[in-house]
Design a binder for these strands. Structure first.
Lengths: 96, 96
DNA sequence: ATAATTTGGTTTATATTGTAAACTTGTTTA
DNA sequence: TAAACAAGTTTACAATATAAACCAAATTAT
């Protein structure tokens, strides 16, 4: 009855990141940080997990001389996000 | 931009319990256990948390000679559930 | 009768997770 | 050239979720 919720997505910060990435082509670390209000440390860790899961890819480069970390959602990530939203609906749509 | 998700509701099992209780007047322990597929221990703990938060009330009685624990959502719980669903929509409705 | 099993849970121990604080490396500004 | 800032990463700690172990009473089997 209640489908299992992908634990990688069922996390406030990771979900926010995925939500942002679902809407844009790519986003860099500082942008994600600003939008989510997360601390750098937390964001760094969660980005790692999403990367390890294959839900996003990370590219490191430079904007001028400053380092820049750019994140982008993978097809697998899009699919997982879609699935998560579907699953979640089962939880939210109960009667009342 | 991203509202804080009530951590009490942002938990797979607690959310399932609340989701069930949102749709019915009341439900007992064994029913919740069957519907969610949770272990007794886990369910017991999560029910305690929801009770401590004032989101549900628990009544203990007997059905025949067997103990029976009945759970019911409080108005505060309904409000919190509603708020959680609203907040969550902000996360899910991002573009694409 | 009494031993074994089942029902309906609770307590407690452990594994996992989330999060912030502290740190690093390099850059810009005073 | 020293201080402050930018962009992250690492690490340590606190909070959570979960299952395993346990308990008490009822039911069923012997």
């Amino acid at each position: 009855m209640f489908p299992k919720l992908d634990p990688l997505l069922h996390s406030e910060l990771r979900l926010a990141v995925m939500s942002i990435l679902a809407g844009v082509d790519e986003a860099d670390f500082t942008y994600l940080k600003k939008q989510t209000g997360a601390t750098s440390g937390n964001l760094s860790v969660q980005i790692d997990k999403l990367t390890a899961a294959g839900y996003i890819t990370v590219e490191k480069g430079f904007k001028g001389k400053m380092p820049r970390t750019t994140c982008k959602m993978t097809p697998a990530g899009q699919e997982a996000f879609r699935g998560y939203v579907e699953a979640l609906k089962e939880y939210l749509s109960s009667g009342k």
